[in-house]
Amino acid sequence: MTERYSEAYAAAHGRFTVIPAVYVLLRRGDDVLLQLRAGTGYYDGHWAAGAAGHVEQGESLLQAAAREAAEELGVAVAPGDLEFLTLEHRTGDGAAVDERIDLFLGCRIWTGTPALQEDKAVDLGWFALDALPDPVVPHERVVLERWADGSLTPITPIGF
């Protein structure tokens, strides 16, 4: 028998929704691939991870990472080639939509040539980790800078 928390149980115990997302940072030497966001209403005009997105229901974090890399960059990544960087736990103004768990993964091996596949970005570029473009989505900049200087920890809290 599989035990599950019911919606009634969650409602009675005051639980909130945490939105999980994955970020795939392709790395070539000391450079990282970033996209310039546009037309999304969320940090448009900012540089961001080459591939990122929400985990879909029934999908593992690694499956989501591989799917996002294919959908956004047209590349295939194998789950075994993904390197755990950090789990970023973010909170905002207390709204459920602002409770986030972001898994950042590095990847040095992929198949295909990265290219924009969707209309949510207008540019794609390789940047040295120690010379990032400006602006970068703030919570992503934290991870990138700490990755560059070696101070990245397994858990990165933001907003607490």
Results as ranks from 00 to 15, higher is better:
Q57W: 06
G94M: 03
V24L: 13
C107R: 02
L33H: 07
L61R: 05
G112L: 05
E83R: 13
I19A: 11
A38K: 04
P79A: 10
D123M: 07
I19Q: 14
P114M: 05
A128I: 00
G159K: 08
L33E: 03
L103G: 02
I109T: 15
E140D: 09
Y23R: 12
A148L: 03
A10S: 10
Y43L: 09
A12N: 10
V22Y: 04
Q57G: 04
V77K: 02
L116S: 01
H46F: 15
C107H: 04
I109N: 10
A115W: 02
L25P: 00
H46C: 15
L33Y: 07
C107K: 03
V55Q: 13
A115Q: 14
P157D: 04
G125R: 05
Y42H: 14
A52R: 08
L61N: 07
A76T: 15
E83T: 11
S60G: 09
R37Q: 05
R15Q: 12
E83C: 11
I158K: 10
V24A: 08
A78P: 04
G58V: 08
D119Q: 14
A148S: 15
E68S: 14
G159P: 06
L34K: 05
G92V: 06
E72P: 02
Y23N: 15
M1Y: 03
H89Y: 02
A76E: 14
M1H: 11
V18S: 04
A66I: 01
D31C: 00
L36S: 01
A148M: 00
A128N: 13
Y9H: 12
L103I: 11
I101D: 15
H13C: 09
G58K: 05
E118T: 15
C107N: 04
R28M: 09
W110Y: 09
G39W: 10
H89P: 00
G39Q: 07
V55K: 00
G106W: 00
T86M: 05
T17A: 14
D44Y: 08
F84I: 04
A38N: 08
H89D: 08
H89C: 07
R141T: 08
V18L: 14
E68F: 01
I101N: 12
P135K: 10
L73N: 06
G80W: 06
L34C: 11
L85E: 11
G58S: 05
L61H: 09
K120D: 15
E68G: 00
L62P: 00
A52E: 03
